[in-house]
């Protein structure tokens, strides 16, 4: 893992990508820092960070697009996958290298709350917690990009796919608002989600018996719950999906200035799930 991590970091900073990512993110954070904090006199650096979030949507796909896709296209994955290292180590090495690139502009951003502090009142704890949340949100987005990159051989497809998915995550709250809040609507929505989960299980296990068992058990639980207490199903779907809002979790740091442990756990568990899926995708390719 260490060898791959070192090579990846070196490769990001030998090519344009690492520098470009660092420069662009630093520049945008700087612009909003100047506008909100220096000129408008907002004491919270987290306001500027919140405004910069949309930049990640564009920068993350550029950072992640070649991570797995390029290895496959140039057949260098043959070197990595026949070396005495596990697939998990290979994927983790690459993921940690991308996190390192993300950490560079954020390390520079750590100076901003200090600048505010030297010029008046600063809320250092709240601001540094926001920077941590920003990092974790970026890390979750990078994990999305990593998974998409492992699914394709083309960097362009990987970038476009990641951008599309991130866009959905950004519009999540708005989209969830359109979901039906009636009990019947929630039942239908939950069954659709169950079907999607089963599709994923089937793709990973290639075993229809397991998939069928998951589907039958899940459907029985949902329908059973609906018959037992259908009034609880009203508004359940938008409520449940709303909890997965990545930006919502960041907002509790940057707008409400609270340390949202649930949000941190959401980010961490999403990262773990996506990295796990990436490993499975790479493993599974041996068998197809």
């Amino acid at each position: 893992m260490k060898a791959i991590y070192k090579r990846e970091v070196q490769s990001y900073f030998n090519s344009m990508i690492g520098w470009m990512f660092t420069a662009a993110l630093t520049a945008f954070i700087g612009i909003y820092f100047m506008a909100y904090n220096l000129f408008q006199g907002d004491a919270y650096f987290s306001t500027a960070l919140g405004a910069t979030l949309f930049v990640l949507m564009v920068l993350v796909p550029i950072l992640t697009m070649r991570s797995m896709a390029e290895e496959r296209r140039s057949r260098t994955d043959q070197l990595l996958l026949t070396a005495p290292a596990s697939v998990t180590a290979v994927v983790m090495g690459k993921y940690l290298a991308m996190l390192t690139v993300l950490a560079c502009p954020l390390a520079i951003a750590c100076l901003c709350p200090l600048i505010i502090h030297f010029n008046g009142t600063a809320f250092l704890l709240s601001d540094y917690a926001s920077i941590l949340a920003f990092f974790l949100l970026g890390a979750a987005e990078i994990a999305v990009g990593l998974l998409i990159s492992a699914l394709t051989e083309s960097q362009v497809l990987s970038a476009v796919g990641t951008f599309g998915l991130l866009l959905v995550l950004y519009l999540w709250d708005g989209l969830v608002a359109y979901l039906p809040s009636t009990a019947g609507g929630s039942l239908a929505g939950l069954l659709v989600i169950l079907a999607l989960v089963c599709f994923l299980v089937n793709a990973l296990s290639s075993n229809w018996k397991v998939t069928a068992a998951v589907f039958v058990a899940g459907a029985a639980a949902i329908i059973g719950g609906y018959i037992a207490a259908s009034d609880r199903f009203a508004g359940l779907l938008p409520d449940m999906l709303g909890r997965f809002s990545l930006l919502g979790a960041f907002d509790s740091f940057s707008v409400d200035h609270v340390f949202d442990v649930r949000g941190i756990l959401l980010y961490l568990s999403l990262i773990a799930l996506l990295v796990f899926l990436t490993v499975q995708v790479v493993q599974k390719r041996r068998w197809n």
Binding site: R7, S11, N14, S15, S74, R75, T76, D77, L79
Partner: peptide, 13 residues
């Protein structure tokens, strides 16, 4: 030690 059909090289190194 394995040399695949296409040598697995990183052009930027």
């Amino acid at each position: 030690g394995y040399l695949p059909e296409i040598p697995p090289l990183y052009p930027d190194m």
